[in-house]
């Protein structure tokens, strides 16, 4: 790209702009996920999530995430100790 103001090739400035734009996109994506996953009114309930074919479970929609295997291991341990867990 020809930079008319400088009368030369504006590669460094273009690179900086591209980098800033890429940084901006990353920042925006992180800001979206940070808000959606970690902020907002907490009501109640559980749900099952999947990330790249790995099942995850939100426990009580709070901050803790655990794998389904871990949750089921915990459940197994509780069942062994206290009987069937509903």
């Amino acid at each position: 790209m020809y930079d008319h103001a400088r009368g030369g090739v504006a590669r460094p400035r273009a690179n900086a702009a591209r980098r800033q734009s890429a940084d901006g996109r990353e920042v925006t994506l992180l800001e979206i996920l940070d808000r959606v996953l970690d902020k907002g009114v907490v009501l109640s309930g559980d749900l099952t999530l999947s990330v790249a074919d790995v099942d995850l479970i939100f426990l009580g929609l709070k901050v803790m995430l655990a794998s389904v295997e871990r949750a089921e291991a915990l459940r197994g341990g509780l069942e062994e100790k206290y009987g069937t867990v509903e």
């Binding site: 979206i32 808000r35 959606v36 996953l37 902020k39 907002g40 009114v41 907490v42 009501l43 109640s44 309930g45 749900l47 999530l49 939100f58 929609l61």
Partner: peptide, 23 residues
């Protein structure tokens, strides 16, 4: 979820609910 919240808030004041809330 984020896109829907964004679309809703363009027209209305709202309190966003945490992702994944199912009653």
């Amino acid at each position: 979820h984020a896109r829907i919240i964004q679309a809703l808030m363009r027209e209305d004041t709202l309190l966003p609910v945490r992702f994944g809330t199912i009653l």
